[in-house]
Simulated assay, not measured.
Amino acid sequence: MAIEVRPATVFADVATMVGPKNPDSNVCWCLSYRLPSKENLALARRQRGERVQRLVRETPAPGVLAYDGDEVVGWAAVHPRADTSFATNRRIPHVDDVDVWSLWCVRVRPGHRGQGISHSLVAGAVDFARASGAPAIEAYPVDNGGERVDLTMAYVGTRSLFERAGFTKAADTTSVINGFPRVIMRLELT
């Protein structure tokens, strides 16, 4: 299996990964960290998908997609931290004043999990950030010590996933998901 990771510029493929089956459902669309809280909370149902349609037309794209041939099999949200709610998040502190990029969501489609696609997505997100001029990239995974993470909360990734990609722990946070503390993992790109 040769996984190719590309910038997320095809709305239908992004919708396959983060959109609902019913367009009138009120789901995340991976906007919770991407938009300021007030804007995120104001968007409902179809408006959420319409907002993502606009994001995929922007430069840089809102993330990357993994493909197995022509089939989209994964998504990773990655963008400059300054354009996300991590810019003002009190639970996840800034390590320094570097204009880092944030990588906050890694999703693999059911039926494709356990094949290393999350590793390809992280590597692709790093390559995308580097090609876009990012000096460093951060992720905010759980430090689960090898314990099982509930699938609905696994989108943040695990510390070990990012360690295998060359990231190192930069700081603790006061954020907790699924009972596990989140840590700031960072990779310098310059």
Results as ranks from 00 to 15, higher is better:
V10D: 10
F11G: 09
A12M: 07
V14S: 05
V18L: 13
G19A: 14
N22W: 06
D24Q: 12
D24G: 07
N26V: 03
C28P: 01
S37P: 01
K38N: 13
L41T: 08
A42N: 10
L43F: 00
A44N: 11
A44Q: 14
R45E: 15
Q47H: 10
R48Q: 01
E50C: 08
Q53N: 07
V64C: 09
L65Q: 04
A66S: 11
D68K: 08
V73N: 05
R81N: 02
R81G: 01
A87E: 07
T88G: 10
N89Y: 09
R90Y: 07
R90C: 06
R91P: 05
H94A: 11
V95R: 15
V100Q: 10
L103E: 01
W104R: 09
V108A: 12
R113M: 12
G114N: 09
G116H: 08
S118N: 03
H119D: 11
S120N: 13
L121Q: 09
L121P: 01
D127Y: 03
A129I: 02
A129P: 04
S132E: 09
S132Y: 00
G133Q: 11
A136F: 07
E138A: 02
E138H: 06
Y140Q: 09
P141H: 05
V142S: 00
G145T: 14
G146I: 03
E147Y: 08
E147H: 15
D150Y: 09
D150C: 02
T152M: 15
A154G: 03
V156M: 12
S160I: 10
S160E: 12
S160N: 13
E163W: 03
A170T: 06
D172K: 14
D172T: 13
T174V: 05
S175L: 13
S175D: 14
R182P: 00
L189R: 12
L189C: 12
